[in-house]
Amino acid sequence: MNQAKRKNKKSKSVYAPGPDQGALESHTLAIIVKNEPGVLARVIGLFTGRGYNIDSLTVAETDHEEGMSRITIVSSGTPEVIEQIKESLRQLVPVKRVRDLTTFGPHIERELALIKVASTGERRIESLRLADVFRARPVDSTLESFVFELTGTTEKVDAFIDLMKPLGLVDVSRTGVAAISRGATTHDEITD
């Protein structure tokens, strides 16, 4: 964010030049929060207030009895910025745990997408054929349209959407990434 601006700033500024930006990394964070009013705004506000990126965001209550929600954020930044994001999140009062699934290693990321394709004739048949290849299910159909339900990685969803474009793609709704670590552990005992 604002990287171009920062570089162009010549020394008229009263502040020192900003640090050189290193390579950006994408990290998937699972943030377990107390489900209280304003908690999402607080987490998002931290990202906007400090100029961090959000590439994807999903949130839902995961433990109704304890009143806990899980926010999954895919963010990109230099390794230092990613560390800052995690530590800043941990300072928020309603944040109980922050897990960086990317540094933990093996984990699964999935997105759900609902994709509406409106076409007739050969294009309509082709869209259904491709949906079959991608294991996308038609969940609604009329004589001139399909709504496909597709789960998969972000890349898979992107690829399917690209293929649907010439076949009459009219609307896309996707959830953003939900992610969880592989294996028996939740990695809570590991501090990253």
Binding site: E80, E83, E87
Partner: peptide
């Protein structure tokens, strides 16, 4: 703080630094 460090890439170039802070997000910021 920026009012303390001045230019950060020339800040105390030859020192090993210990930082005690109650706020973990202040470390390496």
């Amino acid at each position: 703080d920026d009012r303390v460090t001045g230019r950060t890439d020339k800040f105390s170039p030859n020192s090993t630094k210990v930082h005690v802070d109650i706020d973990a997000s202040s470390i390496n910021k």
